[in-house]
């Protein structure tokens, strides 16, 4: 287990949500999606010796057994492997949704392992966008507000957040669905909405966990095409998938088995 590091140093902060957040405010992303925060030569993701064991059904599961992974800025990486191989766990420790037992995780130049939950929360809102397999949208809240609320969490005022949300909805072809709740959208539309939400903070890194897993083939293709467009625009993407078709759209495929990278993962 690595020792916790101090608060991130580089900082171009947006307005904090509250005063207490200003003390350890992680660095904020500026500019277009995909631009790296750290200087030249620093990758978007750097994982070294990551180990993670948890207990499931009374038995220990060694989800990560010493994983090393580098993802460069602007790269589109697909993590593939059989169920239980640790690819979602790897995604979660990169996102700071889970913690490693050993090893180091560096995202856009910042060590995220050993950080407390609030630091990680602020780091995510500033640098990471996450897309889940089952969308995880806020029920009963309009498509617009599903984007606006996370944007406001980043400190944007309502008007600015709405403006960005409208832009994203237009970009993702949901401009005419802004006032509708997720329940009335198709699966593909919901996932596009989830992607729009993930992009609301103009993240340096977009993480997607089986984003097409809950969609039919048409919806899956919609989403895959969207990821391609984002990648073409410079967005760094790490995507977990079972599907070779989806993985084929990525710039690089990293295969995992039994908690390890089974094929070398050269930096693109």
């Amino acid at each position: 287990m690595t020792a916790p590091e101090s608060a991130p140093e580089s900082a171009q902060e947006s307005a904090p949500e509250s005063a207490q957040e200003s003390a350890q405010e992680p660095p904020q992303e500026q500019g277009a999606a995909g631009e790296g925060l750290a200087g030249e030569g620093s990758g978007a993701v750097r994982v070294r010796g990551a180990r993670r064991t948890f207990t499931a059904d009374l038995a220990p599961v060694r989800a990560l057994r010493g994983v090393d992974l580098d993802v460069a800025h602007g790269e589109f990486v697909a993590l593939m492997g059989p169920s239980g191989c640790g690819k979602s766990t790897l995604l979660n420790v990169i996102a700071g949704l889970d913690v490693v037992d050993d090893g180091t995780i560096e995202v856009v130049g910042e060590r995220v392992d050993g950080r407390d939950e609030d630091w990680l929360a602020r780091f995510r809102r500033a640098h990471i966008g996450i897309v889940f397999q089952f969308f995880n949208l806020l029920d009963g809240v309009s498509a617009l507000d599903n984007i606006v609320l996370p944007a406001m969490l980043q400190g944007l005022r309502r008007r600015a957040a709405e403006s960005r949300a409208h832009d994203l909805l237009d970009l993702l072809g949901l401009g005419d669905r802004a006032g509708q709740v997720p329940a009335v959208l198709s699966g593909g539309q919901r996932q596009r909405l989830a992607i729009a939400r993930a992009l609301a903070g103009e993240p340096a890194l977009l993480l997607a966990d089986e984003p097409t897993g809950a969609l039919d083939s048409e919806g899956g293709l919609e989403v895959l095409e969207l990821f391609r467009r984002l990648h073409a625009g410079g967005q760094t993407i790490v995507l977990v998938t079972h599907s070779p078709e989806v993985a084929a759209g990525a710039g690089r495929v990293v295969r995992m088995r039994d908690g390890r990278i089974s094929e070398p993962a050269p930096v693109a």
Partner: peptide, 16 residues
């Protein structure tokens, strides 16, 4: 808890 977990995943702090 799903909504709360999601909001925390999106960057909501414990205090929030």
């Amino acid at each position: 808890r799903g909504d709360l977990g999601l909001l925390r995943a999106l960057g909501m702090t414990k205090a929030q």
